[in-house]
Computed example of a mutant assay.
Amino acid sequence: MHDGYKIKRHKMVTLFSHILWYENGEYLLVTPVEKVRIQVEDAPF
């Protein structure tokens, strides 16, 4: 879900499943170039 809408593209769901990390009590999007802290309203699957 993003902004209240379900992410329907399978490739986008797969991408997020690979770059979403939980580290030191925070959720991060981690790529080879950057690490960005994000806010998660509910625990991701």
Results as ranks from 00 to 15, higher is better:
26 E>S: 13
21 W>G: 12
26 E>G: 06
27 Y>F: 13
5 Y>Q: 07
22 Y>P: 05
28 L>K: 11
21 W>L: 14
2 H>Q: 11
7 I>Q: 02
11 K>Y: 01
42 D>L: 12
42 D>C: 13
16 F>P: 04
23 E>G: 10
5 Y>K: 07
37 R>I: 12
12 M>F: 11
16 F>T: 01
21 W>T: 12
25 G>I: 03
41 E>G: 08
24 N>Y: 13
10 H>K: 09
45 F>R: 06
25 G>K: 01
15 L>F: 14
13 V>Q: 04
31 T>M: 03
21 W>I: 14
10 H>T: 08
30 V>G: 03
29 L>F: 07
41 E>R: 10
29 L>I: 15
6 K>Y: 08
16 F>C: 06
25 G>R: 04
7 I>Y: 00
36 V>F: 04
24 N>H: 15
35 K>Q: 01
28 L>V: 05
31 T>R: 01
35 K>F: 03
13 V>W: 05
43 A>N: 14
2 H>T: 08
44 P>V: 00
38 I>W: 03
16 F>K: 09
12 M>S: 01
37 R>M: 09
29 L>A: 02
1 M>F: 06
30 V>M: 00
11 K>L: 11
6 K>A: 10
18 H>A: 13
33 V>R: 14
15 L>Y: 15
13 V>L: 10
35 K>Y: 01
14 T>M: 14
40 V>P: 02
28 L>A: 04
41 E>K: 09
41 E>A: 12
7 I>E: 03
33 V>D: 14
8 K>F: 05
